[in-house]
Nucleic acid binder design. Structure first.
Lengths: 265, 265
DNA sequence: AAACTAAGTTTCACTATTTGGAACTTACCT
DNA sequence: AGGTAAGTTCCAAATAGTGAAACTTAGTTT
């Protein structure tokens, strides 16, 4: 027993259901959820009711379908502001983006995945949530590898285990072994490449954003195409990125630890 | 007492705690939460643990502070895509924004508040989450009043009750009575104004986005300043906005109700 | 139109989980 | 050292959650 039981109380179960609804990526009917759920009918039903009542899930009575609720969008706005480095990094991303004119990504680690928290795209205008909030794999993205390379050993080990090592392109690293070797190289080099490992024709350079204590706050990457750049020419941007990264780290640290949190009654 | 107790089970309580953490808008210590919480110490403590374990809240052990977790950002991305009209409306917002060159907002109703789900700003570049995800009051914004005016009577009544009627400017509607009268005018006029009711010098025109069945999907507004426009000149944009709105509604409806949701096993 | 079927909802006895006062453990302040 | 406040754990009592099964509703077949 306890096949994949993750010590989940009622709250955990409810949030699992929330994830399940999210995983579908479209409005779902009760039966769809029931089929892919580990919970019995009545339990699932009541969990859904709770979530709907709380506004985390919306229910379209006419169609009988569940979808994620907009309350999440609101919460996320707060999360983005308080929990991510994005608000702090924003002005630096703007500056970097304008100066180098290529696509810039800001990412953080979340549950063994790369979570993009902000983006600048030179050509295309606003893209909003459709970019920030996206997740990607760690083992075949520049930011992913950069963040992983400087992560605490226990975190690193866990994440290396978690990866799927699906082959996206000819250059994708498809084993823990290959990834570990790559991480060593990245560490000594000081930054990471993505050499068409995720999408053909897409390359990038990425740096980790580190606190003074060496803790990984996030990652910064500049992406381009093989048509416009070689890895070598992208690497010339690294000094510039390094200074951006250190300024973000500095600001993030002073922002995370403001004078006094406590306020008198 | 039981000020805002909503028949909450364990799940509801946990989500209340989540909201509470969100409300602070900064990392908070246990004691801060305890003070503003209706739950006893041990209960609050365990709820927080559940949420942290689930990644909805992050806990900084060094500082002993809780903050919203990045898992929310990921969930919100899904929510934005599946539950909001933003992805559908995007191309039309782009077009409208380019043609009229003023700030455009796309909003939906959430818990008696205006939730902005997308935005176009002619001058300033990308602003990401810092704009989408924001909430505003219904009673003194163009989109808020527009959506409210066409809402089902029970929804409308509830929301009218919920408003704070705080006076932001000389023009703010500060009573249910005044708001009701305004809604009547809006209905017969066919669209809503914000005549410096929220911020001095800021005016806007807003339209509801309605399904064929007359259900409110959201709202669309064009904002400007008194320096650049009068209400009358803004009103000239209404026909253009009307066509945008109807195209969004059309797309949204066909998108919400795709051929068949069910898929064979 | 009646019978059938599938999808969704409610019931209810059972029990596991949650509850919260109080005791305990740190960690900091004097 | 002693004191105080913050955070954590305990445990008996009680609540809230569980899920098989019965029920309702809507849609389909005979």
């Amino acid at each position: 027993m306890t096949e994949r039981v993750n010590e989940a109380g009622t709250v955990g179960k409810a949030l699992n259901v929330l994830d399940q609804v999210a995983a579908f990526g479209r409005p779902v009917r009760f039966a769809d959820l029931l089929e892919s759920s580990e919970y019995p009918k009545a339990t699932l039903y009541r969990l859904l009711q709770s979530l709907v009542q709380q506004g985390m899930i919306s229910y379209d009575a006419e169609r009988g379908v569940y979808a994620l609720g907009v309350r999440l969008v609101r919460l996320a706005h707060q999360a983005w502001q308080t929990a991510s480095i994005a608000p702090v990094a924003r002005p630096y991303l703007d500056a970097l983006s304008i100066e180098i004119g290529e696509t810039v990504h800001l990412a953080q680690l979340d549950h063994g995945q790369v979570l993009y928290v902000d983006k600048r795209n030179a050509a295309v205008p606003v893209e909003m949530y459709s970019q920030a909030g996206k997740v990607g794999p760690v083992y075949c993205t520049g930011v992913g590898k950069a963040m992983l390379a400087w992560s605490r050993i226990d975190v690193q080990t866990r994440i290396i285990e978690q990866q799927s090592y699906h082959r996206f392109t000819a250059n994708t690293l498809t084993s823990r072994r290959a990834l570990r070797a790559e991480l060593d190289i990245i560490c000594s080099r000081g930054f990471a490449y993505d050499n068409e490992e995720h999408e053909p024709g897409i390359i990038c350079v990425a740096l980790p954003i580190l606190t003074q204590g060496g803790h990984v706050l996030g990652g910064l990457s500049v992406t381009s195409t093989t048509a416009r750049h070689s890895l070598e020419s992208l690497a010339q941007l690294v000094p510039h990125m390094k200074s951006t990264v250190s300024r973000i780290a500095e600001d993030a640290e002073s922002w995370r630890f403001p004078e006094q949190i406590k306020q008198p009654a």
